[in-house]
Simulated scan of single mutants.
Amino acid sequence: MTTPLRADPFEFSYLEWEWKIEKVLESGDLTKKSGDDFVARIYVTFDYPVSELPFGQKLKYRAYKAFTSFDIPLRSLNYVWASKEDIGTITESPFTNWVQYIVVNSGNEEAEEWTSLKRNIVEDYREAFGEDPRQITGITIMTDSDNTEESTKAWFGAITLSKE
C-alpha cells in the first residue's frame, strides 16, 4: 500500500511507526535476488530527477519504464525487518542501488510483539546515499515473499512524519 505525499525531509525529519510480525522469512537474504523478501518493510521514496542519473542508469530507467506504467522512484530508503542480518546494516538492493535497505529489526526474537521505531530520515539518507535527500514523495508499507515463496504475516500501526 502506497501513500503519495510531498514533504520536506528537513522539516519533517523523523519517521515513526509500529509493527508486529508473525515470523521472519527463513530464506530471506537481503544480499541475494533469490532472498530479497521481507516480512515487513516501509519504503520512503524521494524525488530524484532522471536527468541527474549517469548515462547507464538512464538507459536502465528507460528500460524499466518501457515495461511499467507506474513511477519508479530513483531514491528509496527501505526500513526492513530482516531475517538474519544485523540491526543497523545498510546495503543496496540486489536489484538496484536506487534502493537502500536499513535493517531496523531482525530475526524472530521480537516476533508476535508490537515494536515501535523512530528514525531520522535525513541522517539515514545521507549515510545510505552520501548526499542530502530531496523532497519525500511517498511512503509504502509492504510484506513480500515472491522470491522466497514463503508465507508469514505482518501488522502495521500508526506511521507518522514529525519534526522531532
Rank of each mutant, 00 (worst) to 15 (best):
R6N: 04
R6Q: 15
A7Y: 02
D8I: 05
P9F: 00
P9S: 03
P9A: 05
P9R: 05
F10M: 07
E11W: 12
F12P: 05
F12G: 01
S13P: 07
S13M: 06
L15Y: 03
E16M: 02
E16H: 01
W17K: 02
W19G: 01
K20P: 11
V24G: 06
V24Q: 07
V24I: 15
L25V: 10
E26C: 10
D29I: 09
T31G: 11
T31N: 13
K33P: 04
S34V: 12
G35P: 01
D36L: 07
D36I: 10
D36Q: 12
D37G: 10
F38H: 12
V39Q: 13
A40T: 04
Y43T: 02
F46P: 08
Y48F: 15
P49L: 08
S51Q: 11
S51W: 10
L53Q: 05
L53C: 02
F55R: 12
F55C: 06
Y64C: 13
Y64F: 15
K65M: 09
A66S: 11
F67R: 14
F70Q: 13
P73G: 01
S76M: 12
S76R: 06
Y79A: 02
W81S: 06
A82P: 05
K84H: 15
K84E: 11
E85P: 01
E85K: 10
E85T: 07
D86A: 15
T89P: 14
I90N: 08
T91G: 07
T91M: 14
E92A: 11
E92I: 14
P94F: 01
F95N: 08
N97S: 09
W98C: 03
V99T: 14
V99E: 11
Q100Y: 12
Q100K: 14
Q100T: 06
V103L: 01
G107A: 09
E109M: 10
E110N: 15
E110P: 04
E110H: 13
A111I: 07
A111L: 06
E113I: 11
K118G: 00
R119M: 00
N120C: 07
E123L: 14
D124C: 03
Y125M: 04
E127Y: 11
A128S: 08
E131H: 04
D132S: 15
D132V: 07
D132P: 07
Q135A: 09
Q135P: 07
Q135E: 15
G138I: 00
I139A: 01
T140E: 03
T140P: 02
M142H: 03
M142K: 04
M142C: 10
T143F: 03
D144W: 08
S145T: 11
